[in-house]
Each structure stands twice: as C-alpha cells, then as structure tokens.
Computed example of a mutant assay.
Amino acid sequence: MQKSAWLRYRLNEEKADWIIYVTDAGQREHFVKLFKAARKAGWLPTNDTTYPRASHVGFGAVLGGDGRRFNSHYAETFSLVGLLDVAKYYSKRALIERGKDKEWTPKELDETAEAVGYGALKFADLKNNRLTSYSFSYDQMLRDKGKTAVYLLYAHARICSIIRKSGKDIDELKTAGKLVFDHADERALGLHLLRFSETVEEACTKLLPHVLSEYLYGLSEQYSRFYNNCQVIGSKEETSRLLLCEATTIVMRKCFHLLGITPVY
C-alpha cells in the first residue's frame, strides 16, 4: 500500500515524467505487479514507452572477499560514508607511495585523494552490468592499470599534461586550426569520439550505466594507441593532434560528470 501511495503522489502531485525504482533484482516481481495495478487504475498508460512511465532497475549482489553477500548482518559491511572514507584513506596512501618525489600541499593531497578514492568506488560499481553480482575489493578498484577509475583519471591527467607542455593556446587553435585524420589511429579515435551521444542515449534508454563506463574505458584505450603511434608535440600535424587531444578530454569529462566522478588535472 505504501509504494502505491508513493507512486500515485509522484505521478499526480510531483508530476513526474519517469519514475525509476532502484532495488536489488529480487524485488522485480513486486514492481511488475505494482506497475500492472497502476495501469489498471489508470495512473500509468498501457504502453511502457509512453510518459508518464515507471521502471524498476534491479541490481545484482555485492560480494565480500569470501564470496558472501554484503548485507546488514555481514561482519565487514560498512555504511556508505564508511566505504567512502576508507576509499579515500587507501587512495591517499597510494598517492603518497607512488608520488614520493612530488611535493603535495595538505590541501592538494586531500582533494586528490578524495577525487580518486570516491571515483574508484563509484566506477567499481558502475562498470559492471547492474544485474551481475561482483566481488568488492579496494585493492582491485585502486589499481592504476585495467578497467579502474584510477587508470582513467591518470589517462585524463596525462592528456591535459600534453596540452600544457605544448605551450599552445588551445582556444586559438580551435579558431584557426583544423582536424586532419591521415593516420589510422587518428581516424579510429575520431570515430570513437563520435559515438559518445549514441552511447549516452543507449545507457539512458536501457538504464545501463555500464554502457557508458565501457565507452569511457574504450576511449582511454583508443587514445593510448593514438598517442603511442602518433607523435603530438613537434610533429607537422601538431595542431590537429592537439585538437584531437582536447576533444578527447572534453568527452572524458562529460563521461566523468555523468558517472559522478571528479576528474584530476
């Protein structure tokens, strides 16, 4: 009864266009019955694709290192705030260890550790198909190689560094320069960038955030191939390739924003 009242209130009082319920996959049948009853009552249209609409987004189980499901009775379960705090702590420790020669100010270290730690936690969850169970591991999510936020944030920071080292005004290049796609890896990167809008549409339509996560990881991999095979600074194609670098950072930041991750420069 309570969920029925909430649904009616959101439709009639809040005038919601699309209501999305996010719970574990085990509650799917309950919501199927709720939406069916709402259609019979005339609260929702009979067509699932017509607005206003209501959807259930189920997700798989999060498992501990021993393969047991996290729940309120699990001995090692943290609150969300606790998970974020621990992620930030591990991130800060890793930053200090990896950047022994870097002189951090306390503020820089704290802000970077928070961005990387929180981002790592979010991406570790969002990179999976939401219906698939996965094992939770701080060690895995904070690796700087593979499909992790740390790897993606490092890739973004590296591209920003390349643009800075060029000494060029990127806004001036946008006005006067033009993109040239003579090399196969330039074309492959450009084509991947063009897929951004359709990827966002697919992720939203199907309510599958891992589609966007996969795209972002693929973009980073595609950029790495481009960078390894196409000299940027000092090449005769420098202007075009710097613009391609800038386009990559813009799309990466859009992906980070949609996934709730703060980029590191």
Rank of each mutant, 00 (worst) to 15 (best):
C204F: 10
R10W: 15
S72V: 06
Y151A: 12
A149D: 06
F196H: 14
T239L: 05
E108P: 00
L212G: 09
E172R: 11
S220Y: 11
D66W: 02
V232D: 06
R10M: 14
Q2L: 09
K40D: 09
F196C: 10
N228E: 10
E14R: 14
A113Y: 02
T199H: 07
H183K: 14
Y154M: 09
A87Y: 04
Y151D: 02
S135F: 00
K165C: 05
L7Q: 02
G190Y: 14
P45S: 11
Y265H: 08
T105E: 03
Y154C: 04
G99S: 03
K127A: 04
T205C: 07
F59T: 02
K92C: 10
F181V: 08
I20R: 12
F123Y: 15
F136S: 01
A94W: 05
D66E: 07
F35N: 06
R187S: 15
A247W: 07
L219A: 09
A87N: 01
Q140H: 02
I163N: 10
D48K: 14
M252P: 05
Q27C: 07
V264C: 06
L11S: 04
E198S: 13
V86I: 09
C204S: 13
C204K: 14
G58Y: 05
I170C: 14
I163G: 11
Y138E: 03
E237S: 14
Y215I: 12
D169L: 08
G64I: 00
R225T: 05
